[in-house]
Design a binder for these strands. Structure first.
Lengths: 344, 344
DNA sequence: GTGAAAGCGCTAACAT
DNA sequence: ATGTTAGCGCTTTCAC
């Protein structure tokens, strides 16, 4: 008796079923389908006919079990698949992985270390061939040491691992940010506001470093009052208004990510302030359609995903060199919003 | 001798290894881990200790094989994971699926029927528990009849299946489009251009129908010269310029998707035409930051993904009612770009 | 409360 | 050129 809840599973024909239908053994069918041992032309035909007749589909799980291989999948843990940035990262991973005949399995951690750990555990139990992780803040990846030692490729994306040495692919956050702020300084701005995300995020910290680098390089003072903190466009909009309300307000703003830029643009528009220069990090689709068009430090999310996947695939091919950090360049796209000189 | 190419696989401890370490049988370990049969408290402790010591991870593939269950995964075939719209759809699927303890596996068809078929075959071979498909144009889904008959939940998203009756979740394309165009007509526009994608796409055809519905309801004539065709923002920009160059140009535009809207906005800005009203389909992040803010017919991509996943899960729970079509509502968000009255 | 044997669907290693 | 046997890691069945 087979259980009733899984009709699709119990109805599926097996190799033996096909063999019976074709008048041969399961092994012969296996040979035909995997093209190893020799098979007579006529047998081959009969087998293929039986396969079609029964709608046979090889069971990959059973196959993997037998040949002792890991599952032909790559696991990706990402904060949120629906986020445009991370969606693009996932797309980059998917292309690289599929080109290699592997399948992508994804889960969203929702920026939670607990969910991230649960997803990683699930993926490891599935025996994925490689693991790609955009780590949530507050996590601890020491438990992956053993897996790495056992030869499982583990690559971190967008943010470095915590308490673990492992491969890692990140944007040129600091340098990109520096270039964006330098762009504003070159237009004569001396008071530049930083509209940033929460300090727990690696990217915010790096981009703030780049901001300070640019100020330092120009001999400008760093002022804490010009640095704001907040997650999401509404927080960024409020932060922008607060900056504009300072006794000595900034004449230009640098937005630390796409949502911060959105908040800043909206706040400036609502306040009717066309005299404030703005440079954003990340290049959302409508940036060029804004008025003025938004100058940005563009990242390459698909590039990050692709590079991470390639690195994992190289490890899978036996690359045993020590853990390396790949930095994906950013690109300053001057469109107009950063060209504004300071008033006066 | 185990093969050398898969060190991670061959090193992994098995149930038997854990049993040996704890001085019990594999079966007892299995009992502890799955909590079925009775186990003595002390044995249990010893087993759990051994599990931790060896870093044991249950092999899900082997488990599934034995219990004859399908894999605890849902397969999703999507045109492009990196596309913001489809990324959001995938995010909606992922949330619903994860809440159920299932794992998402995704592949990009790149709008190609061949790739789509290959992905479907891979997923079926993996014995996914359900199949979600955004069908590429030009495909044929008759081959899925058998799978559906065998009880496999198959749900189509965003577009209906070809030559197959199956569950399907789509946006209210026609009605949304009608509402968007009616919005323009209500502002007095009588010549409205349609900036659309390629006719092979189901969504373009439906939205064009909605456009015609709105015209007909207002007693306005349908003019073929006002309807354009082209994929991507550049094509849309060219189409927009062509419409504006007509002897009797439209006073308003309706853009059939996000990229068409982007192209139209950019073209209007470049041409310095602030006098042309515009309504778009889809609600990209910066739409509200445009000048004027973009009026749109917003879709709910995550809602589409979620609804499709829920439908599949209900089927998995035994819902055997006949195939149904779920229509996810759209929402007209009036922001300004559609408020412009026709000149004169 | 625990173990031994059998078997899920498949393939490696040897027959024949 | 094909079949037999054994076994992958796990769970079911039945014995103790």
């Amino acid at each position: 008796m087979r259980r009733a809840r899984r009709p699709a599973a119990s109805t599926m024909p097996t190799l033996a079923d096909v063999g019976r239908e074709a008048g041969v053994t399961a092994k012969t069918v296996s040979r035909v389908l995997n093209g190893d041992g020799p098979v007579a032309g006529r047998t081959r035909e009969r087998v293929l006919a039986a396969v079609r007749r029964l709608g046979y589909r090889p069971n990959l799980m059973a196959r993997n079990i037998r040949i002792g291989a890991r599952d032909a999948t790559v696991g990706l843990v990402i904060p949120e698949l629906g986020d445009p940035f991370f969606g693009a990262v996932a797309g980059g991973v998917e292309h690289a992985v599929r080109a290699r005949g592997l399948t992508l399995i994804v889960g969203s951690s929702e920026e939670t270390a607990a969910r991230e750990e649960a997803l990683i555990a699930t993926f490891l139990n599935r025996r994925v061939s490689a693991l790609l992780i955009v780590p949530a803040a507050g996590g601890d990846h020491r438990h992956l040491r053993a897996e790495r030692a056992a030869g499982l490729p583990v690559v971190f994306l967008d943010r470095p691992p915590a308490r673990l040495t492992a491969d890692c692919v990140v944007s040129a956050n600091r340098e990109g940010s520096r270039a964006g702020v330098a762009h504003l300084i070159a237009r004569g701005h001396r008071r530049i506001g930083f509209v940033g995300d929460l300090p727990a995020l690696y990217t915010r910290r790096e981009r703030l470093r780049g901001y300070r680098d640019a100020l330092a390089a120009a001999g400008l003072p760093f002022e804490r009052t010009l640095v704001t903190t907040g997650h999401g466009p509404e927080a960024a909009a409020r932060a922008t208004l607060r900056l504009l309300g300072l006794r000595e307000p900034p004449t230009a703003l640098f937005a630390g990510n796409d949502l911060a830029a959105l908040g800043a643009v909206v706040a400036l528009a609502r306040a009717g302030r066309k005299d404030v220069a703005l440079v954003g990090f990340d290049d959302p689709p409508l940036a060029e359609a804004l008025d003025p068009p938004l100058t940005v430090v563009a990242q390459d999310p698909a590039g990050i995903g692709g590079a991470a996947a390639e690195l994992a695939l190289a490890r899978l091919d036996g690359d045993r060199s020590r853990a390396r950090r790949t930095v994906v360049p950013t690109r300053l796209i001057a469109r107009g919003s950063g060209e504004l000189p300071p008033p006066g």
